[in-house]
Design a protein around this nucleic acid. Structure first.
Lengths: 337, 337
DNA sequence: CTGTTAGCGCCTTCAT
DNA sequence: ATGAAGGCGCTAACAG
C-alpha cells in the first residue's frame, strides 16, 4: 500500500496537519519539525495522492489543451511548448484532439473538476465552445482566436504582420508580378494575412496580379500551379496562405521541371520546418511558437490563480529567408538547441 | 455551485447510493427509479466529480503517454491514434514529453494516483523507466520496445519486415548496387531494419555496396550524399534508416541537380507523409500507426482492468510505393479519411 | 506553532 | 432493491 499522509505523520511523530503544512509550504512549521517530516516522507517514499488533493482543495493541477489536429507542425510545436511551459509551473497537460464539436470526447475534458483551465488552439467552433466554458466557469485562453470578440483572453498571432512581411519581401526582391493563393476566406487569419500582404504591395504602388482562394491544403497549391502553367500565366512571385499550399505549388513546379526561385519566388506561411525543408530557397513566414505558448500559459495561469491577467498581446511571425548557399539542414540545426 | 450526487438524490427522491448505482450501472436498480435518477441528473446538468471518484475507487480514468519528442510525424500520428482509442474507452490522455529521464517532469506523471496506466513510446531509457513503473505497480505498455526483455508488455513494430520490404523493393527494381545509410547502431530497431534489409539482398545473392551508420537526422543523409557525390560513388539505390535521413539525401541531390529515381532509387522509413511529400517517386516504409495505437491501448486496458492481456504482437510496416505519375498529394488524400 | 474537528464528493460494505 | 454508515487522503477553519 502506498504510504498516506497518516503514515508520515505517525513516523515523524507529528500530526497530519503539520505534514500537510510542509507539503504545501504554508509556513508556520518549526524548522526542526519540517525536517523531521521531510525525513519521514523520504524514508517512506511518500507522494501525496493527487485525487485527494484535488478533492480537498478543488483544484486538479491539470490544464487541458484542445486542438483540432496533430497533423500540423505548428500545432505540434505548440503542444510541446505548452507542455514544457506548464511543467515549469507544476501543471500537467491533458490533450483533447477533436476536429469538431460533435466528436465524442470533444467536451469530455471540459469539466471543472477535470481541469483547472483550458487552452484552445486555433478554434474552429469557438462560438459554441467559449460560452460553454464561461458557463462552467472554466478559465481559458485562446491561441489565435477566430472571433474578434474573444480578444481579451486570447493570444493573437499577428497574421497581418506576417502577410505584410511576406509581401514586402517579394517586393524587395524586385518582383512586380506577384500573386496570392490564400486559404478559406471565412477565417480571420486568412483575411489578416491577405490584408497585410496587400498593404505591403500597395505601399510600393503595386497590386497583386491575382488573388485566388482555396483551402489550406497541398491540393490547392498543386492544382492552381498546374493550371497557371497550362495557361502560361505563372506569376514571378507568389505568397501562399500556408506552407501546405506552398508545398503543393512546389510539387507541381517540380513535376513540370521548373525551379524556385527563378521561375517563381515563393513564400509560405506557418511552419518552421516543412517549407524550408523542401527547398533551400523557399522563404516562409514562421510563427513564434514558443512565445505563443508562453503567453497562453501565462495568461491562463494568471486567471486560474486570480492574478491580474497580462494584457492581450499580438505576436508577430518572423520572415525566415534561407540563404541560397546554406544547406537545408542548417536551419533546423539552429533551431534545435 | 456544481450539483453533487446529493442534489441528484434529493431531487429524484432517492438516496445517494441509488444515484451512485445508476451512475456506475451496477444493476440492482428498479427501472422506474433509474429513469427518475437519470431525469434528475439531466435537469441538474449533473456530472460526477472525477477527483472524488478517483479518490473513492482508486482509479483516475487517465492514461499517460510518455514520449521523447513531438517533432516526429510518426509520433504525432501515434499520439492522435492513442488519444482516439482511449477516448473510445472513456479514458483521458495525459502527455509527458521529455527527451531524457533527467528532464523535470519526466516521471512527474508516473504516479499511481495520477494515471491508471502508461504507454511508453519508443523509449530511450526504458531500463530506468520500466523498473520504476514495476515498483510503483503502474500498468504499462511499450510501443516499439528497445530492450527485448520487455517484449511481453510491448507492441512491437516489425522493423525486420520493414527492412526486408525495403531491400526487396530495391532488388526488384533491378538494382545491384544498393547501399544502406542507417541510424545509430545501438538501437534495436536500427539493427532489425538492417538485418531485414540484408536478408532481402542475400536472398537474391546480393550484398550492399556499403553500410554507413549515422544518426536519425537530415544531417546524416545530407552529409553522406554530398560525400558520395564528391567521391563519385553514388549507389544506384539506397535504403535510409528513416525518412529524415532520406530527406537529407534528397536535399543534397537536389542541390547537385540530380534526380530521384534515375540517379538513385531511395527508400525511406517511418513517416507516411514527410518523405513521399517531398518527392513523388520516393518510396517509404510506413509504420502502421493506427494498429500500433490500438494494440498498445488494448493491451494496457487489459492489464488495467485485470483482463487477460492479448498476446504480444509484431506489427508489420507497409511499403508504400508511389506511382510515378500520381501527383504527390493524392497519397495524402487517400490517407485522410 | 501545533493539533482537533469537519468536510470535499463519491463508493463500498452491510443491514434492511 | 434500497438506504445508513464509514472511509478514500487530504486540507481549511478553528482551537489551544
Amino acid at each position: 500500500m502506498k504510504p498516506s499522509i497518516f503514515d508520515v505523520a505517525k513516523r515523524s511523530g507529528l500530526s497530519v496537519v503539520t505534514v500537510s503544512r510542509v507539503l504545501n509550504g504554508s509556513g508556520n512549521v518549526r524548522e526542526k519539525n519540517r525536517l523531521k517530516v521531510q525525513q519521514a516522507m523520504k524514508e517512506l517514499g511518500y507522494r501525496p495522492n493527487s485525487a485527494a488533493q484535488s478533492l480537498a482543495k478543488g483544484k486538479t493541477g491539470v490544464v487541458g489543451l484542445l486542438l483540432s489536429t496533430l497533423q500540423d507542425s505548428v500545432f505540434d510545436a505548440i503542444v510541446k511548448s505548452v507542455h514544457d511551459e506548464l511543467a515549469g509551473h507544476g501543471y500537467f497537460l491533458a490533450l483533447s484532439v477533436s476536429p469538431s464539436c460533435r466528436e465524442p470526447g470533444s467536451s469530455f475534458l471540459m469539466e471543472k473538476d477535470r481541469v483547472d483551465g483550458m487552452i484552445i488552439l486555433s478554434p474552429t467552433w469557438e462560438d459554441e465552445l467559449i460560452p460553454e466554458l464561461e458557463r462552467k466557469g472554466i478559465p481559458y485562453s485562446i491561441i489565435d482566436n477566430q472571433n474578434p470578440a474573444y480578444d481579451l483572453s486570447a493570444v493573437q498571432v499577428g497574421h497581418y504582420s506576417g502577410g505584410y512581411a511576406a509581401g514586402k519581401h517579394l517586393v524587395e526582391l524586385g518582383h512586380e508580378s506577384i500573386g496570392h493563393l490564400s486559404g478559406p476566406g471565412n477565417y480571420k487569419s486568412t483575411i489578416d494575412r491577405q490584408n497585410g500582404f496587400l498593404k505591403a504591395l500597395a505601399e510600393n504602388g503595386l497590386e497583386p496580379v491575382f488573388i485566388e482562394e482555396g483551402t489550406y491544403s497541398m491540393d490547392t497549391g498543386y492544382d492552381a500551379a498546374k493550371r497557371w502553367l497550362a495557361e502560361g500565366r505563372l506569376p514571378e512571385a507568389l505568397f501562399c496562405g500556408d506552407d501546405y499550399i506552398a508545398v503543393g505549388v512546389l510539387n507541381a513546379l517540380q513535376e513540370a521541371g521548373r525551379s524556385i526561385p527563378g521561375d517563381l519566388s515563393l513564400v509560405g506561411y506557418d511552419d518552421q520546418n516543412l517549407a524550408t525543408l523542401l527547398h533551400p530557397k523557399l522563404t516562409t513566414v514562421a510563427q513564434p511558437v514558443q512565445q505563443i505558448a508562453r503567453c497562453a500559459v501565462d495568461g491562463l495561469l494568471a486567471q486560474m490563480e486570480g492574478r491580474e491577467a497580462p494584457p492581450p498581446i499580438v505576436l508577430k511571425p518572423e520572415l525566415v529567408v534561407r540563404e541560397s548557399t546554406a544547406p537545408p539542414h542548417s536551419y533546423l540545426k539552429e533551431n534545435t538547441p
